[in-house]
Simulated scan of single mutants.
Amino acid sequence: MQTVAALTMVRDDAFFLEAWLRHYGEMLGRENCYVVNHGRGTEVADLAQGCNIIGIPGDPHKSFDMKRWRMLNNFVMALRCYYNHVIVGDVDELVVVDPATGMDLRQWLETVPANRVLTPLGLEVIHRIDMEHETIAGPILGPRRHVRPAPHYSKPCIISTGTKIARGGHFTQYGKLHAPDELFLFHLKYCDLGNYAATMDRRNHVSAATGATIKEAAIGRHWFAEARGEDRAVFEAFEGLEMQEEFNLEPLRRKMRRTFRARGETGFFEFDRPEYHTQYLLPERFSGLL
Rank of each mutant, 00 (worst) to 15 (best):
R68E: 04
C51M: 05
V206F: 15
H146P: 04
M1D: 13
V96N: 06
V4H: 05
R106T: 14
K176Q: 15
V96I: 15
K164F: 07
G175S: 07
P143S: 00
H127G: 02
G89V: 02
R145H: 05
L183K: 05
L94M: 06
N73T: 08
G142T: 03
T213Y: 03
Y276N: 11
L241F: 12
L193V: 14
E239P: 03
K164W: 05
E26K: 11
M243E: 15
E284G: 08
L72V: 02
L79G: 10
L188F: 06
F271K: 05
D92R: 01
L252A: 03
A209V: 01
P251M: 01
T266V: 05
I159M: 07
H152N: 12
D59K: 07
E26W: 09
Q244D: 01
I165R: 01
Y153E: 05
W108S: 06
A262C: 08
T163Y: 04
K164T: 10
A48H: 10
I136V: 06
M71Y: 06
A150N: 15
G25C: 08
T8Q: 01
R116S: 14
A198V: 07
M243Y: 07
C51F: 02
E93N: 04
L185F: 00
T3N: 15
M131V: 13
E216F: 06
V234P: 04
R254N: 14
L141F: 06
E265I: 12
I53P: 10
N115T: 10
R273I: 10
M256K: 05
E216Y: 03
K62G: 15
A19L: 09
R228K: 08
F238D: 11
A48L: 13
L188Q: 04
T111M: 13
H127Q: 04
K176T: 15
E245T: 14
R11F: 05
M131T: 14
T278Y: 11
H133G: 06
M71V: 02
G25S: 06
I129L: 05
E134N: 14
T213E: 09
G240N: 13
T111V: 10
S287W: 13
R148G: 09
A114W: 08
N84M: 11
I53D: 11
A179F: 00
F224E: 03
M66S: 10
A6S: 13
G194D: 11
K67N: 14
A209I: 01
K62P: 13
G169N: 02
A6T: 03
T172L: 06
V36W: 00
I56M: 03
V88A: 12
K155Y: 00
L7P: 00
G211K: 01
A225K: 13
I158Y: 06
V95S: 05
F247S: 07
L193S: 10
Q244R: 15
G58N: 03
E31T: 08
P156I: 14
F16C: 00
A212Y: 00
D92H: 00
A150Q: 09
S63V: 01
D130L: 07
I214L: 08
S287V: 11
V206K: 15
V44H: 02
E239A: 15
T199K: 08
M9D: 04
Q107I: 14
D272C: 04
D12E: 15
L290Y: 04
H187K: 05
P57N: 12
V147H: 03
T135R: 11
C191W: 00
H133W: 12
S160K: 02
Q107E: 15
